[in-house]
Structures are given as C-alpha cells and as structure tokens.
Nucleic acid binder design. Structure first.
Lengths: 193, 193, 193, 193
DNA sequence: AATGAATGAGCCTTCATTCAT
DNA sequence: TATGAATGAAGGCTCATTCAT
C-alpha cells in the first residue's frame, strides 16, 4: 500500500493537472497549487520544490497506455477502421470536454528548457510509431489504402496535435471537429466502390 | 515620411516579434524588450505600456502584410502553385531558422484572456478564408484538384499551424519538414498525366 | 504690457491652482499640469522646472490683500462687527464653494521642506496680527468684549484654518459651518442687554 | 497569547504611525516601512499590500484605544476636568514632540478617495460625540458650565484638529500651545468664585 | 509532515527631467 | 518658445524559496 507521502503526491499531481490544463504552464505558481490543494507552502515544498518538478512528475504519470491497448486489439483482429475510429472518437470527446489542454502547457514547458527536449522527441516518436503500425495493420487487412507509411503517420500525428492544441484556445464547433476527424479516416480508407 | 515615433514603434514591433517567436509570450518581459531594442524603460513605455500592447500591435501588423501580398499576386495572375509554393517555402525557412513562428506565443497569449478571444477566432477565420480563396483561385486556373474548399482549407491551416507549433519544441529534421510540406502541395495539385 | 512668457506663466498658475486645490500638492504631477494646460512637457518646463516652483509661484501670487482693505475700512469707521461679519461670510462662501482647498496643499508642501518654513510662519503671523488689530479696533469702538488680544486672535485664526482645512475633506453641512462661524462672532461681541 | 503574525502586524502599525505622523500619508512608501520595520519587501507585503491598508488598520487601532480609555475613566468617576486635562496634556506632549498627529496624514489620505470618505465622516462624528459625552459628563458633575453641547463639541474638535494640523508645519512655541490649550479648559469650566 | 512568516530577486510602472529637432 | 522622444531613478508588487516552530 502506498505511504501517506505518495498519496499526497498523487493528489497534488491530479489537482495540478487541472491547473496546468486551465492556465498553461508558466501561469501556474506554487501559490496557486497551495491554494488549489489546500496545502501550506511548506507542505507543498516537502513534496515538490518547483512547478517544474510537479510538471515533470505529471508528465511521467500521464504516459499513455495506448500501446498495450492497441497490441491487444491487433491480436484479437479488431478491424483497423474500428480502432482508428475509436482513437479519433476519444480525441473528439477530449476536445469537446476541453481536456485537450495539456499539450499547450507541455509546449510552453519544453520551450526554453532545451535540456529535456529528449523527452518530447520520444513522446512524438512514440506517437508516430504507433500510428505507423496501425496504418500498416490496416493496409495488411486491406482496409486502408497503400501509402507512404512514415509520411502519412507523421502527417496525422502532427495534424491531430495541432487540432488538439488549437482547440484549447479556439472554440471550434463540434461540426468542424467532426468534419476534420472524419476526413482523416476518409483519407486513409480504401476506396469503396 | 513617418514621424520618429512611428518609426520607433515599428522597430520595437520588429524586434519584439523575434523575441516572441523565440521565447513565447509570457517569457518575454518588458525588460527583455528594453534590452533587445536598446531603449530605456521609460522610452519603451512611451510607446507601449505592456507586452500585451506590443503583442497586439504585432499581430495586427502581421496580418496586414499577408493580405496585401496575396491580393497583389492574384491580380498579377501568378500561378497558384507558385503562390502556395512560396508560402510553404516561407514556412520551411522560418522553421529551419528556429523561428517556430508566433503560433505558440499566440496561444499562450490568448489563453487566460477570454475577453479578446474573439480576436483569435478572427485570426483563424482569416487564415482559413485566405487559404480558401487560394485554393479556389488554383482550381479556377486548373492547377488544383476540385475538393471541399472549406474542409480542405481548415485541414491545411490546422496542420500547418500544428507543424509550426510543434517545430518550436521538437527538432524536426529538414527532411521531415520538407516531406510534409511537399505532401500538402501534392495533395491539392491536379494530377498530372 | 506683460510679455507672452509672463502671460503663459499666469495661465499655468491659474490652472495649477485648481489642480492643487482638487488633489493636494504631491498628487499633482508635471504630467497633470501638461495635460491641464495643454502644453507639452518641454513647453511647461520652459516656465517651471518642477511642481515645487509652480507651487511657490502660486503662493506668491496668492497673497491676500486683506490688510489694505481692512485699513481702508477702519479709516472710514466701518463697524468692527460688520467687518468681521464680512470676513466670516467670505470664508463661508469659500468653503461652500469647495475653494477652501489650498490650505491642505500648503501643509503638504511645507512639511518635509523645513527650508522655507519661514514663509508659512510669516503667513500665520500676518493673519494673527490682522485679527489682533481688528479685535482691538472693535474693542475701542465698544463693539467687542475686552479680552486677551493675542490669545483670542490666535484662537480664531487657528480655528478658522482648521475649519477650512477640514472642510476640504469632510462634507460639513451648511448648517454646521454657519453655526460655527456665528459662534465666533457671538463669543467676541459685547453682550447686549 | 497572540500569534506571531498578529504581533508583527501590531509592530508594523506602531512604527508606521510614527512615519505617518512625521511625513504625512503620501510621502510614506512601502520601502520606507520596510526600512523602518526592518522587514523585507516580501515580509511586509505578507501583512499589508499597500500603504492604504496599513493606514486603515492604523486608524482602526487608534480609534479603539481612545474609546476604551474614556469609558473606563468615566466608570471610575474620574473628574471631567482631570480627563479633559489629561486629553489636552496628551495633545500638548504630542505636539511638543513634533508628532503633529495624524490629522494631516488623514486628510491627505482621504482626499482623492471619495469612496471611503464615509470613513472620515464617521471618525469626525466619533470625535464630536466623544467630546459631547465628556462635556455632558462634566456638566452633570457640576464641573463644566452649561452650554450648547453640539456646538461646543464641534468647536473644540475642529480647533484642536486645526491646532494639531498647523503644528505639523508651523513651529509654535510651547508657550503658544499651552496658552491655547489652557484657554479651552477655561472656556468650559464652571466659573469659580 | 506541516505551518506560515520571512527573504530577496526580478519584473512592472510612473515620473521628473533632459535633449534633439 | 514649443514639441515630444528618451532617460533613469524610484517605488510598487509578486513569487520561488527558505526556515524556525
């Protein structure tokens, strides 16, 4: 069972995530976190000595479990279109709920901190590779058109990230979002006749 | 000839743009701008009383530039492919030079300022409309494939914005960037045969 | 005839007086005076190089001409009660019109500038002496009760000054003012029977 | 026992009072208070976020003191003359020590803050009422002459305030002050025979 | 572990004042 | 004389961070 300290830490991270989503990275101060968590300055500092630390912990806790999920689905032979549809739907919901917000904070955080850039690269590579394997899987099953896997995967990942990021600030209508996400699917699908 | 004051203002904006591109919005302080422009605090404040003001002036100046340039090119009958190519090349250069563009700064700026959010919507709409008219222009000249103008324009704008934004933080290789930008052009171009 | 410069100076002083009455001394900045007079910074500085200078010039221009007036009235044998009544009435009107205001600015100005304190002493002495000679005149004519001239004059001067000063900030009703001013007269008048 | 924070607050107020008495309101800066109290900027700001706040707290603390003291004395049946004498003596000492009192600072503070003007009115009313009850108390005990309570109280309050205010700027001799304060007492005392 | 008082650095903002035009 | 751009000092305010309790 986790110790008291660990539990407090998790709580802090959870609350901090909301703050970062709402305000971005640099606009969140330790004071804000004190207030939001109800901890005193000293109390908060016992666990994290800067917003940087909180943010990094948050990112680590936030790693997606898409890979595992996808592997399982592939094994089961779930149709690629269905998997992609599910993924896009998740994204749509996230955006609609205004939760897409962490990306902006991440960008804000990483910029001006060349040091850890590696982290972000890895995150991006990971996303691209996942997308690549999904596209390939779809092509093998004859559901997706043949295409330049690397390029298409990159394109989709970058586009979705852009959509998510922009959504944090521009109030896209549901219609626009749906239209765009749909378009992704249409673009890669084998043409029906 | 413009008065001294106006000239100084323009200079400030030009220099500020570089700063905002490099560091995002909130990381740029009035002090930074003083140093970068070589002005004293008071001198800077005579023209702008906050980074907000500088930024807004910058955005306004930025918009005008594009509009004018494109109108002129269309009048002259410049080929759509050339115009698009030029636009994409500009973007490529900007990214290559590490001037990840203003997008990130804009997002940062707008978040937490619901008031002016309208401003951002307008900017987005403006970009989409510009892209739409470029696509239409290309179609009329038989250079571009027919397509759903609105959707395609939105897609391109969001993608390019995402690419630019991500570039500010992820060190994409020249190859990746070129490949992606090229792909945009290929996607809309009329198929040769 | 006064030169252009002198005329501008007078105008500045006139406008400055209003400002000082309204806001006190330290709250008035050179910028305020620029705005109020419609002059540019440089223009104003040509005439006065600080609010101090403006204020001093203002005080010098503001010297009362009570002495002369009073001497004349005494020669004519105007009743002391009438003279005192006139003086008090002037004060009442001034307060009612909210014009009592300069005293506060003067205090603000003099405090922290021990140097020129002499100026204020003289102003006070002058007022006391005037009051003394008025009281004496009234006593000689049998209109005023005998009293300790010095003490009574001081008392009245200090009281009236306090009343004026307080009026700048506390919205005394007309009734209160009249009652208090009346009381002064009653106190010094020979009892009727 | 009061917490550390409260104690510090009181200390700040005590020291601030001296500063305000010496320099008036607007001439006192937060920096001055830092220096005077020995606190750092942040330390001071933890307790008060502006000189306004300090000043208001000061006024409130000030008021309470007087109220309590007088109530106690009346209960004990202390002679009115003695109470009045004590009050006047306090004032004399204050003036002699160059602590011209807060009046000037109060006036400076209130001007330009119409909002809180009510506060000042209340303070004035409070002072008048206190004086009224003291006069009444003295009359009931046969120590003071009968008089128009309201008018006399107003007169005394305004005069003393004027004396205090003027003292901050005009270097009255001890003799003048004593003479004037004495006169107040003589004016209200029952005539001995 | 937790509290909250205190520190000090850094940014923001306003002015009096100067100076080229 | 007048203009308004520019300077630099002074003061206001906020935060990350430390520390005694």
């Amino acid at each position: 069972m986790p110790k008291k300290g660990e539990r407090t830490k998790s709580e802090i991270i959870g609350i901090a995530k909301k703050e970062f989503c709402k305000k971005g990275f640099s606009a969140v101060t330790m004071s804000d976190l004190c207030e939001a968590t109800g901890l005193s300055r000293g109390g908060l500092y016992r666990h994290f000595s800067s917003t940087d630390e909180v943010f990094i912990a948050l990112l680590e806790a936030d790693k997606d479990d898409w890979q595992a999920e996808m592997d399982k689905a592939m094994e089961k032979g779930v149709p690629a279109i269905q998997m992609m549809g599910y993924y896009l739907e998740q994204m749509r919901t996230g955006i609609a709920e205004g939760a897409g917000g962490l990306s902006l904070a991440i960008y804000e955080f990483m910029r001006n901190k060349q040091v850890e850039s590696v982290f972000l690269d890895a995150r991006y590579d990971f996303a691209v590779n996942m997308m690549k394997s999904l596209l390939q899987y779809g092509q093998q099953r004859g559901e997706f058109k043949p295409c330049n896997l690397q390029m298409e995967a990159e394109h989709i990942v970058i586009f979705l990230d852009g959509l998510q990021t922009a959504s944090a600030v521009i109030p896209f209508s549901d219609e626009v979002i749906s239209r765009q996400l749909n378009n992704i699917l249409e673009t890669i699908k084998m043409e029906e006749r």
